[in-house]
Write a protein that binds this DNA or RNA. Structure first.
Length: 454
RNA sequence: GGCGCCGUACCCAAGUGGCUAAGGGAGAGGUCUGCAAAACCUUUACUCAGCGGUUCGAUUCCGCUCGGCGCCUCCA
């Protein structure tokens, strides 16, 4: 039995897809105006394990992730400057080039983290027609009102607006501490733009029945998810920050348009904590995957770190814990194929049932990792790498490498020095080899040298 | 002002109404070694922020206090 904590009910529920054997899943993707940071990537790793776990259970998963390449306003206070344009100004290239550039680096990050490429990754700019159709439908059904600044969704017309986030609208309106900008065009503070009008400085614009403008940032997820997955689909994933606004609005506009349930299971990943606060692109305190690589870390060590924390708990990031994960993963890769502790079929079967049960209970990846470490079985690691995604076999079954000649020569010199008990020389050669990035050891056969894998 | 999350050993982090509170890292001791590295073995929370309550029994449920964080504006 598979169980997920469904944000809709705030309870663990058995997962049963609409169509036997098939799962339709949508995940909020990146806004491609800058590098993804490792906090963003934590969420994509979580979503990847959801998909992999479903596949291990025999489901055929259709995984859709949007690419947000339409710029949206920085805030209501900003006049016309959006993220895509901000990035474009920063780098002196067009918004379209910015979008393609960061889309590419995003996919590159996924690859390095061994995150499976989603089945489809539709771009918002290529689905403006579908968004307009959806807004038209909402307009026909009387859920919208149009003002000079745009077409808005009237949240007061959607009775279950507060359901997902359990919002207290009165409370939201009472406080705010000055953080909420009051847009005088909105009837209710929670109403949101479906189509934005009269922002001439905005670079990306399209014609629409309401005039030239661009889509509001929630509508793309509704339009694209329903196009590729249907009016109702099984799973929608995202970060916890999306619950009160983005996902809430997605539900409202989707269900108002179709009259049927939008998503059956909502799964939300918690944040990565950087020191005292969350990592944020706007705060400039973010670390990219490339930063980690530049510091000499293996992307999969970061993946391993993430696997050790439950997706619904905050994870405190530090280089100390990344170091710990690196050493830990190195030991995982050192698991020997010989003398497997689970040599009997019965033992292997029992152990894999135990690990799968952990994984299937609300994605208990951390417990599963704990079990895999405890069993320390090559067979078991190999089997469950389908979910863990640590490239276990690839990293453990590396073909014996051919050493560069200078390295081999140093090793020979060291053997000679050791034979003469010239410890001073042999130790200095060892140091040289280590600095070249090799692991050096002594065996009865002489110096052993191998490239450090991570 | 509203909504929500969290507080487990030096660090990261699982987990459970009651058998020995996972796992990883680090530390300590040992085997091995010319010395190391690696590996292996042993070891490290009578306790789960504090105080009350429910209970035969709570770290796990409830309340309060203290502390940390997130969202309510774009945000994974």
């Amino acid at each position: 039995m598979i169980q997920f904590t469904n944000t809709l009910t705030r309870a663990k529920q058995e997962f049963i897809p609409m169509e036997p054997g098939k799962v339709k899943m949508y995940c909020c993707g990146p806004t491609v105006y800058n590098f993804a940071h490792i906090g963003n990537l934590r969420t994509y790793i979580f979503e990847d394990t959801v998909r992999r776990m479903l596949e291990m259970n025999g489901f055929e998963v259709t995984h859709v992730m949007n690419i947000t390449d339409v710029g949206h306003l920085e805030s209501d206070a900003d006049e016309g400057e959006d993220k895509m344009e901000k990035g474009a100004q920063r780098e002196g290239i067009s918004p379209w080039e910015i979008a393609r550039k960061y889309e590419e680096t995003f996919f590159n990050d996924l690859e390095r983290l061994n995150i499976k490429r989603p089945t489809r990754t539709p771009r918002a700019t290529e689905h403006v027609v579908q968004m307009i159709e959806l807004i038209k439908k909402l307009e026909e059904r009387g859920y919208t009102y149009t003002r000079p600044s745009g077409v808005y969704f009237d949240t007061s017309k959607f009775a279950t607006y507060t359901e997902l986030a359990r919002l207290d609208l009165a409370g939201l309106q009472a406080g705010g501490g000055g953080r909420v900008d009051h847009n005088p065009d909105k009837r209710h503070p929670n109403d949101f733009a479906l189509w934005v009008l009269n922002k001439p400085r905005h670079a990306m614009q399209w014609e629409s029945p309401w005039g030239r403008g661009y889509p509001g940032w929630h509508i793309e997820c509704s339009a694209m998810s329903m196009q590729y997955l249907g009016a109702t689909f099984d799973i929608h994933c995202g970060g916890v920050d999306h619950i009160p606004v983005h996902n809430t609005n997605e539900i409202a506009q989707s269900e108002a348009a179709t009259g049927c349930q939008f998503v059956r299971y909502w799964l939300h990943g918690e944040f990565l904590q950087m020191g005292e606060s969350k990592m944020a692109k706007s705060a400039d305190n973010f670390i990219t995957l490339q930063t980690l690589v530049d510091e000499g870390y293996d992307p999969l060590a970061y993946r391993y770190l993430c696997l050790q924390a439950h997706y619904r708990s905050e994870l405190k990031f530090s280089f100390e814990s990344l170091d710990a994960a690196t050493v830990g993963l190195r030991k995982v890769y050192a698991t020997k194929a010989e003398n497997d502790p689970l040599s009997s079929e019965q033992a292997f079967h029992d152990a894999s049932e135990e690990v799968l049960a952990a994984i299937n209970e609300d994605l208990g990846i951390p417990q599963a990792v704990g079990l895999l470490n405890r069993y320390s079985s090559y067979r078991l690691w190999t089997y469950f790498d389908a979910v863990m995604g640590l490239r276990f076999e690839e990293r453990t079954q590396k073909a014996p490498e051919t050493l560069p000649e200078d390295v081999a020569e140093l090793a020979r010199q060291r053997d000679a020095a050791r034979k003469e008990k010239n410890w001073l020389l042999s130790d200095s050669i060892r140091q040289q080899l280590i600095e070249l990035g090799y692991e050096v050891g002594d065996s009865p056969a002489g110096t052993t040298v191998k490239k450090r894998s991570l």
